[in-house]
Structures are given as structure tokens and as C-alpha cells.
């Protein structure tokens, strides 16, 4: 049934009209003081009210140092073989999620179907890019296995792979590696690293020496394949090739019975790039 009118503002609701003062008196539960009443301000608020943005005080020296250490720690952690770099997220990943399924769908993995055609084409400069890992690489690091539950032992050995049996190649001693990252971004621009009793200078020198040594090796330096953690210098080239192979393996995460992507994987060499100079890592 049509009740008539558009509803309006309150008028149709019945009851007597009140002025502002009365409204204010009736809308609060406490008794108002007639001499000093609270008057509701009916004006619409300003669209862009002046807002006094509070400014934090500048960082003290100590805080700067704490921040530096945190950043370097983070950088070293990102450099470790255990770090898994997330694929760039899609635009709608930040939408509100209502339930676990929607949250999970945010992390739709980067498959060959979601490739960006503008950047995915293999170019020479790709070899300078940091290799992205989708799973942590445990195979080179030592672990105190007695403190892990037995179901994770194979993973820690680096044997937790689809074709695990043929992977029993790492028999040499595993070594813990130290990160050689000692600076983070800002130093290059602010040139403040110079004053601190020669310490940063020396670190820089060590980094340079590290680089130099890598150059002495072969053009592993160029390809950026040898990260500082790996300490791969002692390993022979076969191992490096096996490494690349292993990296290939990591890329397909799903171990379903039917893997449609595998269908295309076999003709990897069709891209024609693969200079063959270092093991040919033609992955995306």
C-alpha cells in the first residue's frame, strides 16, 4: 500500500515539532542546565576542515641507529635463501575479504596464465634481476634437526620435492653462511657513512673485495647467480647447473596429478635465448 509522500524529514513521523533546544534537551539522558544549555549545531560540517597535522619530533641519534640496524637486518633476511619473495599482487588484493576463501584467492600464484606480456619477454637484462624464490631453499644450510618434528626432516634436508629420490646429490657438508650486506639504500645518497670511526668504510671495502673475488672467479658476478649467502665458490660448475635445475623445479608449486603447465614446459628451448654460458636458466 502506498503511504503517500516521500517520507520527508521527520515531519511524517508524527509527534509535535520541537525546536533545537528541545531536541537537545531530550536527546541526552542527563538533565541539562537551563542556564547553560547544550545547543545542537545543525550546520553541516565543513568539507575540508583545517586539520592540524601533528608532526613527530625528529629522530634522535640512537633511534637512527636502531632504525639502521633494523633495516640492515631486514635486508640481510631478504637476502637469505630462506626468503620467499611474494609475486606482485593484483590490484584487487586489497579489497575487503569476507572469509578465508577470499583471503586465499588474494594469493593466486603467479602462473604462466597471469604473466604480464610487456615485461615477461626474456631480455638480456633479465639476468641482472634477482631470482625470485617461491619456496625457501633449505638444502644448503645446516639445521639442528633434533628440535624439529620428524615430518619436517626431509624438508630440512632439501629432499622435499616432487621427484625426491633422484635428488640425493647433496652429500657435502652444509655450511651456515653469513650475509655480507652492511648497508641499506640511504647511505649512497646521504654520505653519512663516512664519519663513523672508519667502520663503514671498511665494510664497504670488504664488499668491494667480495665483488672483486667474484670477478676473479668467472662471470658468475655478471649473471648475479652467486648470492652472498651461497658461498658456492667451492662447488663445481655441475653443481651450479644442478642448482638451476632445482630452481626450475621450484617454480611449479602444484603437484597435482595432472599438470597442464608441464605440457608446455618440455619445449623450453624454443625461446631461442639460452646462451649456454651458464646452465641456461630460462625460467620466468
Amino acid at each position: 500500500m502506498f503511504r503517500g509522500g516521500r517520507g520527508g524529514r521527520g515531519r511524517g513521523r508524527g509527534g509535535p515539532m520541537m525546536n533545537r533546544r528541545e531536541i537537545s534537551q531530550n536527546s541526552v539522558p542527563w538533565a541539562t542546565d537551563p542556564k547553560d544549555p547544550i545547543v545542537l549545531d545543525g550546520k553541516p560540517s565543513e568539507t575540508y576542515p583545517a586539520w592540524n597535522v601533528p608532526k613527530p619530533p625528529v629522530l634522535t641519534k640512537k633511534e637512527e641507529r636502531q632504525l639502521d640496524y633494523f633495516l640492515i637486518f631486514r635486508e640481510q633476511s631478504h637476502d637469505s635463501p630462506l626468503y620467499t619473495e611474494p609475486p606482485p599482487r593484483s590490484k584487487d588484493s586489497r579489497r575487503r575479504a569476507y572469509g578465508q576463501e577470499q583471503i586465499n584467492s588474494r594469493y593466486a600464484d603467479e602462473s604462466k596464465a597471469t604473466i604480464n606480456p610487456f615485461t615477461a619477454v626474456e631480455t638480456y637484462s633479465k639476468r641482472f634481476e634477482r631470482k625470485k624464490r617461491t619456496l625457501p631453499d633449505f638444502s644448503n644450510l645446516p639445521f639442528a634437526k633434533e628440535f624439529f618434528p620428524p615430518e619436517l626432516h626431509a624438508t630440512l634436508d632439501g629432499l622435499d620435492e616432487p621427484g625426491a629420490d633422484r635428488k640425493r646429490r647433496r652429500t657435502g657438508p652444509k655450511t651456515l653462511a653469513l650475509s655480507s650486506i652492511t648497508t641499506y639504500g640511504a647511505d649512497e645518497f646521504e654520505e653519512e657513512g663516512e664519519q663513523g670511526n672508519g667502520q663503514p668504510d671498511f665494510n664497504k671495502a670488504l664488499e668491494l673485495m667480495d665483488n672483486l673475488e667474484k670477478m676473479d672467479g668467472d662471470d658468475a658476478f655478471l649473471s648475479g647467480e652467486e648470492d652472498d649467502w651461497g658461498n658456492n665458490e667451492d662447488e663445481d660448475n655441475e653443481d651450479a647447473a644442478a642448482d638451476a635445475e632445482a630452481a626450475d623445479q621450484y617454480d611449479d608449486e602444484s603437484e597435482d596429478d595432472y599438470n597442464a603447465e608441464q605440457y608446455f614446459d618440455n619445449d623450453d628451448n624454443d625461446y631461442g635465448d639460452d646462451g649456454g654460458d651458464d646452465g641456461g636458466d630460462g625460467t620466468f
Binding site: 625457501p136 633449505f138 615430518e151 619436517l152 608449486e253 602444484s254
Partner: peptide, 10 residues
Amino acid sequence: NARQLRHGLA
């Protein structure tokens, strides 16, 4: 999948 989980948990 279980493999991812094992790696993450480790």
C-alpha cells in the same frame, strides 16, 4: 599444498 606448508613451517 603440503609441500609449501612443510617449507613454511620449517
